[in-house]
């Protein structure tokens, strides 16, 4: 094993180009577990800790460009207004110690269906900034996850940042685990209201081979809100519509039975979380989130 310590982003890209099999390690919260438990022996470890740029973010008018290594602890504390869904998800990651090290870039790199940041990225709308010595490309989150623990990165690419749409309405995140802290998701759900475009977006974690959006549920709800004039009136979402939204969200799942939970439970729980997060976000929208319309 060789330990590569690039001092700059350019050096990191060069190292990755030279050693495409190199495994990037930032917070180490996934990679080191695999090494400690003898499940993985990469030829090269590519340490990204020395690259300061990766720990910074820029807040633009429409999006936040979040450095790949910004730890969850900072997201949950400092980006609550801009990225409320992701901030909520960040707060559910592992433990305080893990949140001081783990990052969205790591979550994307590992591409586990259970990664906590995927659902809010899908719900908010995000593009992964992948870079190599060949250049930069922006991969929409929906296209980034290609299979269980597989992603769209080319062997020579590294994740530089994630460009996440700034919230224009309330967002929520919920995750089920069989413990009240420090759990890997049995399943997770994120919902973002987008009053500006009068759309809603969702993200589901750990209930399919990859993180997915519940598009039918989104379309249904957007139509129901539109038809009912809810965006203007702020009237509560009719329970029948909320139920249908929840059913459609569950329908978007393609879960498995595993040691963490049954497929049936996962579908059921996603439906419950969809209904609840809809209630919470809509309540927030009614209570003041509607200002976002003219923001």
């Amino acid at each position: 094993m060789e330990f590569l310590r690039p001092g700059s982003w350019e050096e990191a890209l060069a190292a990755k180009a030279e050693h495409p099999a190199a495994v990037p390690v930032a917070g180490g919260t996934d990679v080191m577990v695999e090494i400690n438990f003898d499940r993985r022996r990469p030829e090269y470890l590519l340490d990204l800790n020395r690259i300061g740029d990766l720990y910074e973010w820029e807040t633009g008018e429409d999006e936040v460009r979040l450095g790949a290594s910004v730890p969850y602890a900072r997201i949950m504390e400092e980006l609550r207004a801009e990225l409320p869904g992701l901030a909520l998800a960040a707060h559910t990651v592992g433990s305080p110690q893990i949140r001081n090290r783990g990052s969205v870039g790591g979550n994307l790199g590992a591409a586990s269906p259970a990664g906590d940041s995927h659902p809010p990225l899908l719900a908010a709308g995000a593009r992964v900034e992948a870079e190599s010595v060949r250049g930069t490309r922006l991969i929409p989150a929906e296209e980034f996850y290609t299979g269980v623990k597989r992603n769209a990165l080319a062997p020579d690419e590294l994740i530089r940042a994630v460009r996440i749409a700034r919230a224009d309405g309330p967002q929520q995140f919920s995750k089920v685990g069989t413990r009240n802290a420090m759990v890997i998701a049995v399943c997770a759900f994120s919902l973002a209201l987008h009053p500006r475009s009068r759309t809603v977006r969702t993200g589901i974690g750990s209930a399919a081979p990859t993180p997915v959006r519940a598009r039918a549920a989104e379309d249904f709800l957007a139509a129901a809100l539109e038809e009912g004039g809810h965006w203007e009136s702020g009237r509560p979402v009719p329970p029948s519509a909320a139920r249908r939204f929840a059913e459609l969200a569950a329908g978007a799942c393609n879960p498995i039975d595993d040691v963490r939970g049954s497929a049936r439970y996962r579908r059921h729980a996603v439906a419950v979380m969809a209904r609840r997060t809809l209630g919470w976000t809509w309540e927030a929208y009614r209570a003041g989130g509607r200002e976002h319309r003219c923001a």
């Binding site: 080191m32 340490d47 110690q97 001081n100 090290r101």
Partner: peptide, 8 residues
């Protein structure tokens, strides 16, 4: 505070 086991 971090887990020293996960820092290379």
């Amino acid at each position: 505070p971090v887990c020293a086991c996960l820092v290379a």
